[in-house]
Design a protein around this nucleic acid. Structure first.
Lengths: 206, 206
DNA sequence: TTTGAATTGTGAAAAAAATCACAATGCAAA
DNA sequence: TTTGCATTGTGATTTTTTTCACAATTCAAA
């Protein structure tokens, strides 16, 4: 099986989301141009990407919304349900917990962790908060593979190392710290300032 | 002037941040391998990128931390100060306001906006919140070019259109909505679920 | 001075990604 | 039926990005 580029994966995730929206609006079929318009990518790239996932549309009716959504979901291997935990119930952490609750994704947030006694044993946006000390056991017992880090930058490396040691294989890192980890671990850095800097660059320079 | 790829810009922003950190630790010089290690990219890519910004190091001492940081900052055109506003003082909005305060960037958050009467005229993390109705005037009077959107997805398109109409040229969009705008406007989509989905994919599939 | 070791900068090659362009398809209307 | 049209799927091409590999550089030590 051919390795798929990260950019392709990004786009597929966007297509999937747009397809989900179309499905909810009871739209049955969609053409590559329409999907391209909705996602913000050129239509030939849409077709090329769908070639990668192996879905075939028809020249007459385009793509079947439901089938294509399912096909992409299968391709992305989002199986029954993926359990995710979040570490750091600060402003941002709570925002994300809230955000997760709103979505009916196959990704389910199962627990939050914090070191602050005032937050431990409380429920935020439907998610129970445990003390950070119990995290290693939790990960092992529940076979958690993916975690979201929203702690202060200074704590990020230590937490991340502990996560990986316990079995976590993928991390969404919302802190500005660059994590140094075993390279089998997939890290998605989402430093919000970075996005802002990029916009500033493209607005007045590029 | 040659057009620089978006990925290159992403990396340059990361290098700049690492250089800033090194500078604060009073490190004077850095080699491409070290900078590569800190940023998480291969060293030959670091060298290639620095070639793009036109900075020359020395084989004996590598790169001068202070000079290189300045060189990248100039290249990225982060001038004296860029004024940014934020729309939507919810969980996420407040998290970002907090985050901005912590950084001593050349990017300065100058105002927040919301439609909720309970939030208007209050100060969050040092930033004053105005009513959304005053946003068009504010943008024009203060010549705001960049905005961050953290409103509910259903309001995003309307707000974004109003921003662009008033003169905004770049938007950091934290909502899951795909904004349809004039294509001269630079949009950075930071849908947090998308990052999570990507990690899930690379952990159990790719 | 001379040698050796480490590093930079960059042409050239390779790999990857995006775009083009068009044959093949399937429907609708004449 | 037949014609015409809009669309898909995909080889081929182009462009972009990354990687390789090594000459040139600089310093320290002999």
């Amino acid at each position: 099986m051919k390795r798929i580029a990260e950019n392709t994966i990004n786009r597929l995730i966007v297509y999937k989301k747009e397809l989900e929206r179309l499905r909810k609006d009871d739209v049955r079929n969609v053409f590559s141009h329409k999907l391209a318009f909705l996602s913000g990518f050129p239509s030939h790239l849409v077709r090329r990407d769908l070639m990668n996932v192996g879905y075939n549309g028809s020249p007459a009716h385009g793509y079947d919304v439901v089938e294509l959504e399912k096909c992409i979901a299968d391709f992305l291997c989002t199986p029954g349900s993926v359990r995710v935990i979040l570490i750091g119930v600060g402003n941002l952490g709570r925002a994300i917990l809230d955000y997760c609750q709103q979505q009916n994704h196959k990704i389910s947030m199962v627990a939050a962790f914090d070191s602050d006694k005032n937050k431990v044993n409380k429920v935020y946006h439907g998610i129970y908060t445990f003390h950070i000390d119990s995290i290693k056991n939790f990960i092992k017992e529940n076979d958690i593979k993916v975690a979201i880090i929203t702690v202060p930058a200074s704590d990020a490396q230590e937490i991340a190392s502990a996560l990986v040691e316990s079995g976590v294989r993928g991390i969404v890192n919302f802190t500005p710290a660059r994590l140094q980890l075993n390279e089998e671990v997939y890290i998605e850095n989402l430093d919000m300032m970075l996005g802002l800097e990029k916009v500033v660059y493209f607005v007045d320079g590029g």
